[in-house]
Design a protein around this nucleic acid. Structure first.
Length: 350
DNA sequence: GACGTCACGGTTGAG
DNA sequence: CACTCAACCGTGACG
């Protein structure tokens, strides 16, 4: 299917323009290439305010992305949509019921401790005291009352379930949770690098370069504003595609595999043309708004803005909220190292 | 002027 | 299958 059409199908009304002249899709994450660019520029010493102006992304967004990157090592947006997996699985409820039956006067916090001590839950899926209280009140209330009079009488058991049915699919990416069991504890910020949404550090994400190449592969190379991130990539960033929490780390960088949401592809014939990479000192100062059309985007490089509209009506070429061949100049820093890590199947799948 | 934070209006997807 | 809900998003404003 024509990807331009796909894009417009997915983003029928995309193309709001922010105060800086940048185009964004309300409710949707910035393209990975933009996110990557933000982090890259920051690492080059560019101030967030300058990044904001150069990339035409609100400073709040820049701040948020950088903060997240500093905290998690990931540039990727969080998982949008879906529901959190419940920690109050039937198994947990069953155990709570059992505890309550054995000791009708047991406190919720005692139940919580016992769930942990008995290995029913671990610290990642341990229900809160309030959750336990709610369970006691809503699901076991009658039973607990009965149990005082009908000792030993149990409700039918739910089918047996794994003790940890969800954790490995829903690990939190940030300091919200500590390193999961079995995960190596890494020093510094890298310690969080591995938890969902898994490794998407700048280093790791450099596989993103292939996005640009893919654009070229699919005939969008002459459209500097085509989104760098395919829709499939965005759709892959959801709760149904959480990769396993663990993945091998090499020098703090996950190189073991590409997560589903990182199905960045590449052309088989290698490196993109690199003619526009601009290092920090050469990045020109912020272009005054007077030079910028309201619909003017920015080019892949920090040194040049796209002079035309970054998006057009659906009748036009492939368009993008942001010009997204950005990955190209970024990628080649460690491109050769990462190129081999790109899964060919993922490439073909796109 | 830079930047952290948050309300807001939006999208998404599991249940 | 339509709906709900809670997650996320980036913007824009405020301090």
């Amino acid at each position: 299917m024509d990807e331009t059409l796909t894009f417009f199908t997915q983003y029928p009304a995309f193309g709001e323009v922010n105060q800086l002249g940048g185009v964004f899709v309300n409710g949707r994450p910035l393209p990975n290439a933009i996110r990557l660019r933000i982090v890259e520029l920051a690492q080059l010493g560019i101030r967030p305010c300058d990044i904001s102006r150069q990339l035409r992304v609100s400073h709040g967004c820049v701040s948020k992305i950088l903060a997240r990157y500093n905290e998690t090592g990931s540039i990727l947006p969080g998982a949008i949509g879906g529901s959190k997996p419940r920690v109050t699985t039937p198994t947990v409820v069953k155990h709570i019921r059992t505890y309550k039956q054995r000791d009708p006067g047991i406190f919720a916090w005692e139940i919580r401790d016992r769930l942990l001590a008995d290995g029913v839950c671990d610290k990642f899926n341990l229900p809160s005291v309030s959750s336990i209280s709610r369970i006691l009140r809503n699901k076991i209330g009658n039973l607990s009352q009965q149990s005082q009079y009908e000792s030993g009488k149990q409700a039918p058991h739910p089918p047996p379930q794994p003790t940890l049915p969800y954790n490995h699919l829903y690990s939190y990416p940030t300091s919200k949770v500590p390193t999961p069991p079995g995960m190596p504890t890494l020093p510094g910020h890298m310690a969080m690098h591995r938890i969902w949404p898994s490794s998407h550090s700048v280093t790791d994400i450099l596989g993103i370069r292939s996005i640009t190449e893919q654009q070229s592969k699919h005939g969008f190379s002459d459209s500097p504003s085509f989104p760098s991130t395919k829709l499939e990539e965005w759709s892959a960033i959801n709760r149904t595609n959480f990769p396993p929490a663990s993945s091998p780390l090499v020098n703090g960088v996950d190189k073991g595999h590409l997560e589903p949401e990182a199905k960045y592809t590449q052309t088989p014939n290698g490196l993109p043309t690199v003619n526009s990479y601009v290092t920090a000192p050469s990045i020109p100062p912020y272009h005054p708004p007077t030079q910028v059309s309201p619909y003017m985007g920015y080019s892949a490089t920090t040194s040049a803005y796209v002079t035309g509209p970054t998006w057009q009506p659906a009748s036009g070429n492939a368009l993008s909220p942001h010009s997204c061949d950005i990955a190209t100049p970024l990628a080649f820093k460690r491109m050769s190292a990462n190129r081999d890590a790109i899964h060919p199947v993922a490439a073909s799948a796109l």
